[in-house]
């Protein structure tokens, strides 16, 4: 038991988040072990994005704990910036900085936050651009790139800080169907490289392929969780079945 505790990168315990009188997250427990990929699925408004934002300390939690490598980072006494330096998030809407080129977007945090030598950070950023298949786009501004290209730059930006935990918030939801593949291929490769990932997605087929564990969120609670084959293939809870049936009807499970 103790061994397993040490293995956990992220441990969310009884997380509660309210906006006004609506309870978005109502006591969530999720654990992500080192080099594991945990996928959160659920209908729109089930709290997937809120969960990721809370984990990245972008939103203050109302109750419960978030432990990163065994340290409670949700404590108001904890150094939030230090915890954020060890995580990276990729947003649904990319959120690239429009006034910076692709390479500057990627090298910003290494240079400014992690004090990497600017020349080295630049080189590293070019490497990452190569990794996400965007050689030759280093000096392009985000509005010159397609959605898929922008999201690939955003992934490179997140990887540039060598995060202990990578958070992916429905990163393909804002993309055209034909651009989804290029982004997911990169995530697959990153996952295979041993990155610890917590992600929210609507791409069930993709979730099945890369996840070690799938968590189904419903009305702010963990309704069902387990290995992807079981949760996606043979769900026990009626809510999960209902949700998956609707998703299949929409053509997402391919």
């Amino acid at each position: 038991m103790k061994e397993q505790q040490a293995e956990l990168v992220l441990d969310v315990r009884g997380l509660v988040k309210r906006y006004g009188t609506t309870t978005v997250l109502d006591g969530i427990d999720i654990a992500v072990g080192a080099h594991q990929v945990v996928t959160v699925i659920g209908a729109s408004g089930s709290g997937k994005s809120t969960l990721l934002r809370c984990v990245d300390l972008l939103d203050e939690v109302d109750d419960g704990q978030i432990l990163l490598d065994g340290v409670d980072i949700s404590d108001p006494r904890a150094d939030a910036a230090a915890a954020q330096r060890r995580m990276a998030i990729v947003f649904q809407a990319f959120n690239l900085f429009p006034h910076m080129t692709a390479v500057d977007n990627i090298s910003l945090a290494p240079r400014v936050v992690h004090k990497v030598d600017p020349g080295e950070a630049h080189e590293k950023a070019l490497d990452l651009l190569h990794r996400v298949g965007l050689d030759g786009f280093a000096d392009a501004y985000p509005d010159r790139l397609s959605g898929g290209q922008q999201q690939r730059v955003a992934i490179a930006r997140a990887l540039a800080v060598r995060p202990r935990l990578l958070l992916l918030d429905e990163i393909t939801s804002a993309l055209d169907p034909e651009l989804v593949g290029e982004v997911l291929a990169i995530v697959k490769e990153v996952a295979r490289g041993g990155m610890t990932i917590l992600m929210a997605t609507h791409e069930m087929g993709f979730a099945k392929q890369v996840s070690d564990q799938v968590v189904f969120l419903d009305e702010g609670k963990v309704c069902e969780s387990g290995p992807p084959e079981r949760v996606l293939g043979d769900p026990t809870h009626p809510r999960t079945r209902q949700f998956l049936a609707r998703v299949i009807a929409a053509g997402w499970l391919t």
Binding site: V16, D63, G64, Q65, D75, P76
Partner: peptide, 20 residues
């Protein structure tokens, strides 16, 4: 509408208030 808070959350809230 009030929610039952865990002792942990209550203590955090008190800490934030005292900081403020």
């Amino acid at each position: 509408m009030t929610h039952a808070l865990s002792p942990l959350a209550r203590e955090r809230r008190a800490y934030r208030r005292s900081r403020a």
